[in-house]
Amino acid sequence: MKALLYGIYPRSDDLRKEINRWERFGQKEDLKKAFRSETLSLESTFDSYALTYTDPLFNWNDILRPVALSMEHVKLGELRRYMETNTFYRQPVIDHYPSFSEVEKDPYPYFPLYYGESSLAFLPSISTFLSMSSVNKNLDRKKLFGSIFDVYTDILSKYGKSSVLLFGVDPVDQDEIQYVEMLSDTCSVTVISPRKVNKTPFLKITDKIEGVASVDSLDILPNSRCPVYIGVIDSKNTRVEDPEYVRDIVSKAESSGNLAGITASDYLDFLPRVIADRKAKVMSEVINGE
């Protein structure tokens, strides 16, 4: 039984203040140290909890930003609402087919995508990256998929990541499936979506990937050929789950199919840090039987 934490984890007050200081005084090296130290500290806690996790992405302001900043022909546009939340992301504007770039882009400073070494990489699924972007209508969708896929493989290669979690706000669609398959030839891939996954095309790739979770995990559990995580930890409510209650759900789900373990309904950046920390501990208590 695993407990998977993914995506942007809430920044501590100290780190938030350090970023404010950097915005005013521009001490980039100090900020890099702060990111690294907070990442290492959290990873150490997660290791002691025996959690499976992606990089906490403390340097990501939203789930697209550093990815967009790593691309040629993509710039940042207006703020847009993330799903039905009161959290906003900067919409990427895609003028031409993207390619990988490490050049710093002003006025947004480039931070390396990843600091953590032991963690899974986190990337938005290609269809999510496109649907949350403003895309030049003259660009061919299939070619766009191909060029973003190339950027993703460059990113994974540069940071030496052999495991990746693809996060799909929009379910992985037909256009993306071949790229998920190609990625899974060289990399261990887990797919997570906070919405329902599209059953028919999606289930085809479950023999190629490492794990899956979505809001309809319990529905796909009987038919999935890869292990399924169930999102029992609510990322949009401060009420902290009772480990007994979570264990009950898990034990009922176990008989339905190939259960990987538990995860959260979305990434935890929508919660105050103190609550996210408590929820991470609950996940640990569930899998470790405390």
């Binding site: 970023i19 915005e23 009161n86 959290t87 906003f88 992301y89 900067r90 105050p272 840090r273 103190v274």
Partner: peptide
Amino acid sequence: FHGLVRSFDNRYYRKGS
């Protein structure tokens, strides 16, 4: 109030429970 939650970028607000 348990703490701050992100609005956008490094901008946060107090969201009550």
